[in-house]
């Protein structure tokens, strides 16, 4: 049942070198640089996104994900979810308005998989980049690289996927769109949505907590995914796999790494989910086809290379 969580709003990613990371996220992915703050963090977004930013880069000694944030409908919902999380047994941390420039009050909790998540209700809205909100043109000129349209979701690895799924379902109102189940009936992957998208966040079981598998960005077409592949080669960017299609969600995809080793995905297509839809199930013994629909063989890297 919906609890007022709207969408993925931001992800803060740790990078080893900020300028190298900017060349990657701004010039290759084509995200728009929106702001910087006194901590040295850089704020970016996809051009179709209405809110001011969705990706925050922070220089650190270890790459990975600091946190992922979801925007909720309004401040009443935020307060309600805050008390619901506390009642559920989560430690909820308060982060004051403005700690991220242009973002309102945030609350933060750690899921059983070891990842930090945030909820917030307000963020400055700068509108779609390069377009008016009245009689908008089809797209803005001057986009770079892959012309990524929006931050779409994260895939995260950690233990206690089941407990995390229950928290997201019972407290935050996410639906289980797709799952991977092993022969003993254990859910080893949960693809969760707060919207009609096939996933807003996904979890895969792994013994080490808090691991970052990828942040994903949406493209409009298969042609754009192939073009992204061309750009990855042109720039000698570290590729993981693709272009190919996923079985899970059926999205068309290519995976690659940022200069600090964080994995990125750009993809198009994918299934949709309504709240009355039962979850789609993939068998763990067919995980190869579930992840890489064409090769039908899982590469070790997809399961073990994480930041």
């Amino acid at each position: 049942m919906k609890k007022g969580v709207m969408r993925p709003g931001h992800v803060q990613i740790r990078v080893l070198d900020l300028e190298e990371a900017l060349e990657h996220y701004r010039d290759l992915l084509g995200l728009i640089e929106m702001d910087r703050d006194t901590q040295g963090r850089v704020y970016l977004k996809g051009w179709t996104e209405v809110d001011k930013f969705s990706v925050v880069l922070r220089k650190a000694d270890e790459p990975g994900m600091d946190f992922m944030g979801f925007k909720v409908l309004n401040n009443e919902v935020l307060s309600q979810l805050e008390s619901d999380l506390t009642a559920y047994g989560c430690d909820v941390e308060q982060i004051s308005s403005g700690e991220l420039k242009g973002c309102g009050r945030r609350i933060r909790f750690v899921a059983p998989t070891g990842h930090s998540f945030e909820l917030y209700a307000e963020k400055e809205q700068t509108g779609k980049w390069g377009l008016s909100n009245v009689n908008p043109e089809a797209w803005p000129r001057g986009l770079k690289g892959m012309k990524a349209t929006r931050f779409d979701h994260c895939l995260l690895y950690g233990p206690n996927v089941e407990a995390t799924y229950q928290l997201f379902r019972d407290v935050l109102g996410f639906d289980l769109a797709e799952q991977v189940v092993d022969p003993e009936g254990n859910r080893i992957a949960a693809f969760l949505t707060a919207s009609m998208k096939a996933h807003d966040v996904a979890f895969i079981d792994c013994p080490e907590p808090g691991k970052f598998h990828h942040a994903s960005f949406f493209l409009d077409s298969w042609e754009q995914v192939l073009r992204a592949g061309d750009l990855i080669s042109m720039t000698d960017t570290s590729i993981d796999i693709g272009p190919t299609r996923h079985g899970l969600t059926h999205g068309q995809t290519i995976y690659f790494f940022d200069p600090s080793g964080n994995r990125n995905e750009v993809f198009c297509g994918g299934d949709y989910h309504y709240p009355d839809h039962p979850p789609v199930t993939w068998k763990a013994e067919d995980l190869g086809k579930a992840i890489f629909y064409h090769d039908r063989v899982l590469n070790e890297r997809f399961l073990s290379v994480l930041t």
Binding site: L16, D17, E62, G64, F257, G261, T307
Partner: peptide, 26 residues
Amino acid sequence: GCRGGGCGVCKVRVVEGDYSSKCMSK
């Protein structure tokens, strides 16, 4: 692995030789 100093898969020990290096995950 990631080829970016992040995932740790390609860890080796240098026995001999000179090299320059870029930053890698602590």
